[in-house]
Design a protein around this nucleic acid. Structure first.
Lengths: 142, 142
DNA sequence: CTGCTTGCAAATAGTTTGCACGTTC
DNA sequence: GAACGTGCAAACTATTTGCAAGCAG
């Protein structure tokens, strides 16, 4: 359940030596609710429903802290904005450049590509941190 | 040779109904010299060696025009900035998140992944327009 | 000569930072 | 109570846009 997941994450934050504050609690709650792929703005809106005084810059700073301890991850989509999501359940993102839809696919899909790149170019792809641009089914026909 | 490639591109611009101006000529020259992976700023610097009055906004507008007719392409690397390159010789980019190095790999490397994603998710990847983040050989050891 | 392009300045979007104050451990 | 986190305002970076003047076709 969501509450359990949230509590686990909050415990993790404390274990990692980061402080647990009202803002961070609300942020984790928002991340759990959001189920991935949210911008900092989206998160601010969610958080502010519960805690109206939490400032957008706090969202950024907290996301940064959570990212350093491996709790969240972010991906840059085409046009400047970044989207954040919890880092458990690693997955990749397919982003439709027409409608902006984000499709999640399991990490394993990229395993073979990863092996190839590593063998041929010595390049280690970072699981969970890149987006593939293209067109989703609905937007595929030019 | 470079000059020939540049002239071919300039001819292409005219054929596509776009105007050929001093700024655009200089931009194409810069793109050919740069051999890929340059930011708008980089291009402005290169262009301004030859044509000091060309403004950065003109670079952006011209790149936009060239992109619309398929002469250039751009990729968003991790941190906000975009890099531009000529669109002939399609290739993909591997970007090292530690040192920023960009490794080019032929489009074909991604063919199988593309097939898989299309078959399983109806998602058509856009060749030539996404960057894969990870670590290059030199930065691979944590 | 008519409209596309340009230079400039100013606007915008997304994110970061300095500082004084409040909170967590 | 010392160190860290937060709110706010202001700075920053990358990019876009309005406008008047200039050049291409």
């Amino acid at each position: 359940m969501d509450a359990a997941r949230r509590d686990r994450l909050i415990a993790l934050i404390r274990e990692q030596g980061e402080r647990v504050t009202t803002a961070r609690r609300a942020l984790v709650t928002a991340l759990v609710q959001a189920k991935g792929h949210v911008t900092a703005d989206d998160l601010a809106a969610l958080v502010q429903k519960a805690q109206p005084d939490v400032h957008l810059s706090t969202i950024y700073r907290s996301l940064d802290a959570l990212e350093r301890i491996g709790v969240v991850d972010h991906v840059h989509l085409g046009h400047g904005r970044a989207v954040y999501h919890l880092a458990d359940e690693p997955h990749q993102h397919l982003v439709c450049e027409v409608c902006g839809a984000v499709v999640e696919v399991p990490d394993a899909t990229f395993a073979e590509l990863g092996d190839n790149l590593h063998r041929r170019y010595g390049f280690t792809i970072r699981p969970n941190h890149f987006a593939v641009l293209g067109r989703c089914r609905a937007c595929a026909r030019d």
